[in-house]
């Protein structure tokens, strides 16, 4: 069951089609990555989900029913470009935004106390936003996003502007919210965090969804049949069945990177083959990183585009 479905979304601006028949289905209670280069249409899609703007064609379903105006109260949105009222005090700011999300003033106060405590910044209510460091402002912004305990959280580049310690804190909070039942959409360029956090992704490029699926499956599909093999004795040579692409001495012997030539040959067969030639100390298949897949996919289409032009 999907928590959020955006089906066949088309969004046309005057001379530019921001989204062209994009379909994204976000499973309940998972972390979903929305990837893509700048200007691909991610933000437009996020704005459509947030009902900031409407699609020209297509529909957005939440819990299987069409999106309603009141649904904004179940969504928490952290935009890429952060912003708070600079002259406003932290406490007022948090309460104001929480009330706009439909919390009563008392519920908002309760929730604020909880989050300030959690982020170890109790007693900040009276400080003005402009007096805080950028990192601190980000924390406040994050709190305003999650104050109303939303069912759906949308983070656009959540880690930008955080130091590693706070980024880690944030990551823990995101995972915790997922464990408590929230569904999370996560838009980022940081592929490391995608591999670490996301269950599924959609890669949007030039207004189209060009790659979709579970992270593991995508990496599996894009594998280049490369293996890292460490041998203690003996030596490997390229042959009809595999090709050595790299070799270097390591502490226990020698390490090779090799590509198997026949994709249908199973890994066990390969190990058997290798074991006959040398003493294997380590064997590992190298899966492509999301970063490589991203560059490959986006780069390819950029290349096509250039050829078409």
């Amino acid at each position: 069951m999907y928590y959020l479905e955006a089906n066949h979304i088309v969004k046309q601006y005057a001379s530019h089609r921001a989204l062209d028949d994009v379909t994204v289905r976000v499973p309940r209670n998972g972390i979903y990555g929305l990837l893509g280069p700048n200007g691909a249409g991610k933000t437009t899609l996020i704005r459509i989900i947030n009902q900031i703007t409407g699609p020209d064609e297509g529909e957005v379903l939440i819990d299987g029913r069409p999106l309603r105006p009141s649904d904004v109260e179940h969504i928490g949105y952290l935009p890429e470009e952060r912003g708070l009222y600079k002259k406003m005090k932290v406490g007022e700011q948090i309460l104001y935004l929480a009330q706009l999300k439909g919390l009563s003033r008392n519920a908002a106060k309760e929730s604020m106390a909880y989050w300030l405590d959690k982020f170890d910044i109790k007693g900040w209510e009276k400080k003005k936003i402009e007096e805080l460091s950028k990192g601190m402002q980000q924390k406040i912004q994050f709190i305003t996003t999650v104050m109303h305990n939303p069912q759906l959280l949308i983070f656009d580049e959540p880690f930008s502007g955080f130091d590693p310690v706070n980024a880690n804190l944030l990551k823990r909070e995101i995972l915790e919210m997922r464990d408590k039942g929230a569904t999370i959409i996560f838009s980022t360029h940081n592929m490391g965090s995608v591999e670490e956090l996301c269950d599924e992704i959609t890669l949007i490029n030039r207004s189209h969804a060009v790659l979709q699926g579970k992270v593991n499956e995508i990496r599996e599909q894009h594998k280049k049949h490369l293996f890292q093999v460490e041998v203690q004795q003996g030596e490997l040579q390229s042959n009809d069945l595999y090709e050595i692409t790299d070799s270097r001495p390591v502490a226990r012997g020698h390490a090779y990177t090799l590509r198997k030539c026949d994709p249908h040959m199973s890994n066990n067969e390969l190990i058997g083959l290798l074991a006959r030639q040398c003493q294997i100390a380590g064997f590992e298949e190298i899966l492509p990183t999301m970063n490589e897949i991203f560059i490959e996919t986006v780069g390819e289409s950029a290349l096509e585009e250039n050829q078409n032009v």
């Binding site: 900031i52 935009p79 912003g83 708070l84 706009l100 912004q141």
Partner: peptide
């Protein structure tokens, strides 16, 4: 210019 507006319009209609 403060960019607060994007947060605001995710809660209220422009």
């Amino acid at each position: 210019t403060n960019r607060i507006v994007e947060v605001m319009v995710s809660s209220v209609k422009p």
